[in-house]
């Protein structure tokens, strides 16, 4: 009898562990809204997750980039400026590690917003991309008006603003932001930190396997 109970307990534990493994997925971040909706005459609750609104910016090749550019892709977004003397080089160096890992994947893209659009014109972005030796079909460095880029930062729930006191004249978050195919935020990673970058590389794998 006791033996039977122990056996049941062990089986139960195995199932729990197996379930936990199967359900391992990235959280969906940002403000959520609970709404009630009518499903076949019954009231059901539904969660609406925060999503990135559509945008339209030009990239280093003067091509228009919008959410449609990332159709059926996940992407990694960040904010930077080309003359940034502090955290940008190390962020870009870490982002390059991620880029190198997923260079041949059609499902992963990169989107870097300049927060200094007056200086970082399209030719400046082009030169920057050439110097980093990155492919413009995969990694878009985009230029948009100050207001629109700061609004974008807000929608990614990160900070980016002008600050005359800061080195280089701007302050911004060093976050690399992981966005899924439904435009939802699935992770923030400190782009200045090696360990966080390694976690991003792992989490992309997890996200790509989601729903398969």
């Amino acid at each position: 009898m006791v033996k039977g109970k122990i056996l049941l307990l062990i089986i139960g534990l195995c199932v729990m562990v197996a379930c936990k493994d199967a359900q391992k997925q990235l959280p969906i971040l940002g403000p959520k809204e609970l709404v009630e909706k009518d499903v076949n005459g019954k009231i059901a609750e539904d969660t609406i997750f925060h999503t990135i609104p559509d945008f339209r910016f030009r990239d280093q090749d003067s091509n228009w980039v919008s959410l449609a550019t990332f159709n059926d892709k996940i992407y990694i977004a960040d904010f930077f400026f080309t003359t940034c003397p502090t955290i940008c080089p190390v962020m870009k160096s870490n982002l390059l590690k991620v880029y190198d890992q997923y260079k041949d994947s059609n499902s992963v893209s990169f989107l870097s917003h300049t927060i200094d659009p007056l200086h970082d014109s399209i030719p400046v972005l082009k030169d920057y991309a050439n110097r980093l030796d990155i492919n413009s079909f995969k990694w878009h460095l985009v230029n948009g008006s100050k207001d629109s880029v700061y609004a974008m930062a807000k929608s990614y729930l990160v900070s980016a603003q002008e600050d005359k006191e800061a080195p280089g004249g701007f302050i911004h978050s060093g976050a690399l932001i992981l966005i899924d195919k439904k435009r939802r935020i699935r992770g923030y990673y400190d782009g200045t930190d090696d360990k966080a970058t390694a976690k991003l590389i792992e989490d992309i794998k997890l996200l790509l396997n989601e729903g398969r």
Binding site: I87, P89, V90, K92, L96, R131, L132, D133
Partner: peptide, 16 residues
């Protein structure tokens, strides 16, 4: 220095 010139002094591609 390392943020730009790299932890091992490797620089950053053709940027730094």
């Amino acid at each position: 220095c390392a943020n730009c010139h790299g932890k091992e002094g490797e620089g950053l591609k053709k940027l730094i």
